[in-house]
Amino acid sequence: MSEPTTIGPRLSRRRLLQYGGALGAAATSSFITVRSLAADTAEVNMQLGWLASNGILGEVCAKRLGYYAEEGVELTVTPGGPGVDGVASVAAGRAGVGQLSSSPSLMLARSAGIPVKAFAAGYQKHPFTYFSLADNPIRTPEDMVGKTIATQPTAVILLKALLALNGIAEDQVEVVKMGSDMNQLMTGQAQAVTGWMTNTNALKILGDDRVDMMLWDAGIQLYANVYYTTDRMLADHGDVLVRYLTGSARGWGYARENPEAAVDHLVSEYRNLDRAGELEAVGPVLGFSFDGTTATEGWAAMNAGNWQKQIDVYADLEQFKGETPTVADVMTTDVLAATEALRKQIG
């Protein structure tokens, strides 16, 4: 996954307008969420929160190897892009399922009254990381005191959460904004920059004396590559979601067993991707997808306790403009439960 910026976006005016437009569209138009093709085939549109990347490695494999076809699912993938996380598209019913880069977007959308709900988590740990250099390293949150941290505008809130969690006053750390580049660290303007651990090209630029402090390890535990859908889809087409997740699980299982072949599938499907870069990234991608949790609970597992903690962090920081959502609002384990046997074999 190469997406370095959108993590926990605040609801901007524009985004609210987008959501509003989405709801309006949902109410008035005839967008089709799931279309039955044959008696036993459903067309599922998967909306991404970012461009097509290694975040859908398993889906691409499942599609190309016919796993979805065997489940009676015909999958199309719709990419998002900068400033477009796809929630509006899923909420409007244009896409049946969506994948979000980070879980906070989903909580914020729910709080804004958008009826979307997570049903699986692609990455068990969020790969968002604070990168520093060995001559002025940041290994723990305490190391940030007195330093300048460059982070994406949407991730400032995470830094605040991290500081609050560790009892560090906000004025003890200088926060500056950054885009997708790592220059502020390389030129010494900042002592840490942020990005995803799976973005191997960015890490290459930082060189060998890089010091990583992953947000997850520092105490803010978010999910990444969250699979979500609408309440209506869950109610009306739960069986399609189960079939979809079954296909995805098999695809990810294949990718885990055959990383190189999986990369070949990915770059054949999306020719703009760089094969060499993807081969380097596939290790970390699988590392975040499969860990101790998935070994016992299966691929894409997530738990309610962790969601509650995330809601609490955001509620404490007064990020919810609407009502604070409950765990039941933001996630369901129904689809996970229905696919448990297979996922456990793969995890």
Binding site: P4, P82, S180, K204, I205, N272, G277
Partner: peptide
């Protein structure tokens, strides 16, 4: 446009 985004965010 899509290639510009891909190249930008992947440091190509």
């Amino acid at each position: 446009g899509s290639l510009i985004i891909e190249a930008t965010y992947n440091f190509r």
